[in-house]
Design a binder for these strands. Structure first.
Lengths: 233, 233
DNA sequence: CCAAAAGTGTTTTTGTTACACCCATGG
DNA sequence: CCATGGGTGTAACAAAAACACTTTTGG
């Protein structure tokens, strides 16, 4: 089985930084550990990559165990490989950045993992180098969401422009001008389709429910859209 | 040594996608393999991560072996983990994206590895999934260079605006307007310091040699600068 | 009928693009 | 003295920011 004469074999783990948005706050899906090491402390959801399992495959497996969802949006964040990052044994960890529709996930699956949605601004201290992973993931979310339409991954299938705006305000922690946000930034992308329906929950004027034009979304995914003005120096 | 009861131990490799620019063409540093597997074929420079060595440390070691340089600019590209990506043995490979000043590297070190600088537009077929790695690295170079001042990593310490422009033209494979490039895009970033010297090699009017304001460069590294207009849909 | 939230249009300001002229150098 | 490449300015255009009014709804 071991055919290369040199080279050391190491544990390879995946750790998932899972973001959600409940309409009010940005949240992280975190595990209250029921097992050693660090039992009782908070951590990211993770798992080891098996020998007969590709990295993508392992990512999908672990995200499914956690959320009960098969089509989670994720991408690699970074691979973490400090010698002492896991005090139990040398482990290389591939950090995964995942965005999910918080309303679609399987609550029982999450409960089975002892996972909870925690507001980002109340996140607890995490084990190992998981704090660093979350910091980096948040940076990446802010970076990507400014120019790529990834925010939609966090919303229900049908959503309103004000909901989308609230999401962006949460991501960047700053208020956005409704008039500029709505007409120019969002509708000019032509990514949204008016469903004809209205948000019946609203107590005041009911907002139009849009859905994503998935075909255009796929095509334009790597193009630039200025949802947010680029950072200041 | 193995303290986790479950989890498989796998080989972890690093593969380096090293870009250089000779003033005319974008180049890749590739290895003509003197060893099995795939002896005689072209590949990226790589190596295994040792048990007592952090990922960064391993990256620096391998880049040093290849280039003789200690302070190479690199970042993680992506980690590749398909089950069959290495036919010899299951290996997870962390792809590294590196930019070097082609004139500063140690030619003897490169020769010892049987490494050659190959023009990007003449790159040979590479072993394993290395073609995919290069494709992704090129995409990343184009993506990042459009907004972040990473191009400087490919140039000598002192360089002229026309040299910088040539570099960007090579990266994007399209001509840029000299007048717009020079004054507005580049000098407006205030990242360049006029050294007072001129490029004596030029046969015509000698261009001003600039150097990077390293302090500002560090500070502004993550800010946005529109070196190139964002992609078209 | 009014408070609260949603929808839309216009002006100002800023940045990008397109384009033309002058300067320095070596042969 | 002229061909080649380097340096700079300006007008036209496009995009972003700032800003104000009207509409819908439930209570």
């Amino acid at each position: 089985m071991d055919k290369y004469a040199h080279g050391e074999r190491l544990l390879v783990a995946l750790d998932c930084i899972v973001f959600g948005f409940d309409g009010e706050n940005l949240k992280l899906l975190l595990i209250k550990r029921k097992f050693e090491p660090e039992k009782g402390n908070w951590s990211l959801m993770g798992g080891f990559v098996e020998r007969n399992e590709g990295l993508e495959e392992a990512a999908n497996r672990i995200l499914f165990e956690l959320t009960g969802l098969r089509d989670v949006y994720f991408e690699q964040l970074q691979t973490f490989g400090d010698v002492d990052r896991d005090p139990v044994e040398r482990t290389i960890s591939v950090g995964l950045f995942a965005l999910i529709n918080i309303h679609a996930h399987d609550q029982d699956a999450a409960r089975a993992q002892n996972a909870y949605w925690i507001n980002l601004d109340r996140r607890p201290n995490l084990i190992f180098d998981h704090n660093k992973m979350v910091d980096l993931a948040l940076e990446k979310l802010r970076y990507k969401a400014a120019m790529h339409p990834i925010g939609f991954e966090l919303l229900p299938d049908k959503f309103t422009i004000p909901q989308l705006q609230k999401l962006y305000e949460e991501i960047y922690n700053e208020p956005l001008d409704r008039r500029n946000f709505s007409s120019r930034k969002i509708l000019s992308t032509k990514l949204l389709i008016d469903t004809g329906e209205k948000n019946e929950k609203s107590a005041t004027k009911k907002a139009i429910l849009y859905k994503l034009d998935k075909e255009k979304y796929q095509k334009q995914f790597n193009s630039f859209h200025y949802f947010i003005s680029p950072g200041k120096n």
